[in-house]
Nucleic acid binder design. Structure first.
Length: 576
RNA sequence: GCACCCAUAGCUCAGCUGGAUAGAGUGUCGCCCUCCGAAGGCGAAGGUCGUAGGUUCGAAUCCUACUGGGUGCGCCA
């Protein structure tokens, strides 16, 4: 049940009736007509801007339209009163039964309350994390993982068919470096002294991989040239790293549907095919790029390369797909990868990248736009840096990995649920401060706690009720009658609308802020029970009222549970 | 030099894709437990929405130019 769409339906009906009555011209675009909660609750429960957006095209004064529209709306089934206000708003007061209906609907629909068919089953591919398989995931990846996963769940909840995908960069030079680093650890496992030189990975996490390699091949690679072992060790090491990464993701509760290997693109003709497709559109040519203005690299010299005319699709300069030695640039397999995604029939692609990939956005969008002739949109979400703190002080680096704080460090310290929720309490494009102490603090400036606390309180009431042999019952909700109770129910009514807004804007953080508001509304009502016993959830001698109030808070429980469920967070029944 | 992101209360941030008197938390000050969890709640104070123009019934939101901060910029992925 989405109160907003229902009321908007009534507004549109009324407008149509006005057109039929000749009060409004035909053929008006109603797309801009909105129904929203007014910022100031004194203005009523709902407001519509219909009169103002239609005034100009209809050639009438906003307040005149508003007056006529309000007259028609006032007779509606869900509407108690409709008043014209300000420049032409129509403020609506809804009938008490609307809030009771919402409460009932939330309780009955449970896990499905707020679920939308907005996506209409369209296929979406969300690619996220996609960290190089050269080591464990670190904090930055954690944010990308949490964000991508929540966005995927949100889209699923909004009616899309979602695929979660991880792109393994196992085709480039960095996996050769990985192989050499593992080889050093392999020598070390054989008792040799080794030095990690320029660019090799010195992290401790490779020690076990070196040992494992020794167990597998014995001394077969000792004193052998790279040509003998590189390919084998690279595969072995990459697999080991992906094993590590999968475990890291699992510790966060992230499960991918597809791990797509970059290497699998090579030798299959897919890259060639993708580029041929661009070539057919006349977007591939041989040429020489201008040096970047202002900051010319010292070793700059003009080279002829194979270029993609990305400027035809909104990029600033054309981009090379081949290096001067004829090998592919990184961009080429990336084009092929997206070509593959498109050919798998997705209606929408979403890439979640770290902020350091900002420079990549335009060319990637250009590529997808060119490949699909603009048919398939690609949205790229950049997640900004995570700054770690401990007790207000910048956090010192991890002892285990030597160079960075790992995902595992964070999860071990504060837990997956807290990590996930906190990392979603900021917009993806804003930097995030993550204080390892504060996120575990149990106070209301910690949104995780505050929301969980509301859920725990509800569970506490339910335990008390159970002792008295009472359970929620939505069949008679007439006891839900106080403005404070309506306010809470009104907040519940916003949930389905919020899901759609968050999903269309690809902004899962909105869920966190909503849940905080909902929790706040609930805590407020709880406390009003101090002064007004009639507002307490359990009414001594009135089982019908108690059941109704239990239904109300049960509905709150449902929404909290659904909301944090989208975040992959489990609601708690008791604070500890 | 160019591109992208950001700028809102002392601090940390929301702001429902253009709506009414811009909201939370924190910090400061004052209140509220004979009551289902006070790990809470209520109230006060706090603002030229970076600056200057523009678009229109209406701008924190859209456009332009600046200022300040972050990120990136051909054979690294």
């Amino acid at each position: 049940m989405n109160v907003f769409t229902e009321i908007r339906g009534q507004v549109l009906e009324a407008l149509t009736a006005m057109q039929e009555a000749g009060e409004l011209p035909a053929g008006l675009d109603m797309g801009n007509v909105t129904v929203e909660p007014p910022r100031d609750p004194l203005h009523g429960d709902m407001a519509t801007n219909a009169a103002m957006v239609l005034a100009k095209p209809a050639g009438a004064k906003p307040r005149d339209i508003a007056g006529a529209l309000a007259g028609r709306l006032a007779g509606g089934a869900m509407i108690d009163s409709a008043e014209v206000a300000g420049p032409g708003f129509i403020n609506l007061r809804l009938a008490a039964h609307v809030w009771q209906d919402v409460t009932r609907a939330a309780l009955m629909q449970g896990n499905d309350f707020g679920r939308s068919d907005m996506g209409q089953g369209r296929k979406v591919n969300v690619e996220y994390v996609s960290a190089n398989p050269t080591g464990p995931l670190h904090v930055g990846h954690t944010r990308g993982a949490v964000f991508g996963d929540a966005l995927a769940s949100l889209l699923d909840f909004a009616g899309y068919k979602v695929t979660r995908e991880y792109y393994i960069n196992d085709g480039g030079a960095q996996v050769d470096v990985l192989a050499r680093s593992v080889y050093l650890r392999y020598l070390e496992a054989h008792g040799q002294a080794v030095a990690f030189e320029d660019g090799t990975y010195p992290g401790d996490y490779l020690i076990a991989v070196g040992v494992a390699l020794k167990t597998k091949v014995g001394d077969a690679y000792l004193d052998q040239p790279e040509s003998v072992w590189l390919t084998e060790v690279r595969d072995f090491a990459t697999q080991a790293m992906m094993g590590l990464i999968r475990e890291d993701l699992k510790s966060l509760g992230v499960e991918m549907d597809i791990f797509f290997s970059e290497k699998s693109l090579y030798g299959t003709g897919l890259i060639e095919k993708a580029l041929a497709s661009l070539d057919e559109k006349g977007l591939i040519y041989e040429g020489v790029l201008e040096p970047p203005k202002g900051k010319t690299p010292e070793d700059w010299e003009p080279r002829e390369q194979t270029l993609f005319r990305s400027t035809d699709h909104g990029d600033d300069v054309d981009r090379p797909v081949k290096k001067s030695d004829g090998g592919w640039t990184y961009f080429a397999p990336d084009i092929a990868y997206h070509y593959d995604k498109v050919s798998r029939g997705y209606d929408l692609l979403i890439d979640v990248f770290g902020a350091d990939h900002g420079g990549y956005v335009k060319r990637m969008k250009a590529a997808v736009s060119a490949l699909t002739d603009g048919r398939v949109p690609l949205d790229i979400k950049l997640t900004q840096l995570v700054k770690l703190y401990q007790n207000g002080q910048p956090f010192k680096m991890s002892k285990r990995a030597g160079t960075f704080v790992t995902l595992r460090d964070v999860v071990d310290l504060v837990g997956a649920d807290v990590t996930r929720f906190v990392m979603l309490t900021r917009k993806n494009d804003a930097p995030l401060d993550f204080d390892l102490d504060k996120v575990r603090e149990q106070s209301k400036d910690n949104p995780v706690f505050y929301v969980q606390y509301a859920h725990a309180r509800i569970c506490s009431v339910q335990r008390k009720a159970a002792e008295a042999g009472i359970a929620a019952d939505a069949s008679d909700l007439s006891a839900i009658a106080h403005p404070a109770e309506f306010a809470l129910a009104a907040k519940l009514a916003e949930w389905p609308r919020l899901v759609e807004i968050a999903a269309t804007s690809h902004e899962p953080h909105r869920v966190a802020f909503y849940l905080y508001d909902l929790a706040s509304e609930f805590h407020g009502l709880w406390n009003k029970g101090n002064a007004e016993p009639a507002l307490r959830f359990l009414q001594e001698d009135d089982p019908v009222a108690s059941k109704a109030k239990l239904a109300l808070i049960g509905a709150v429980q449902v929404v909290i549970s659904n909301g944090i469920g989208i975040y992959g967070v489990t609601p708690v029944e008791e604070m500890r």
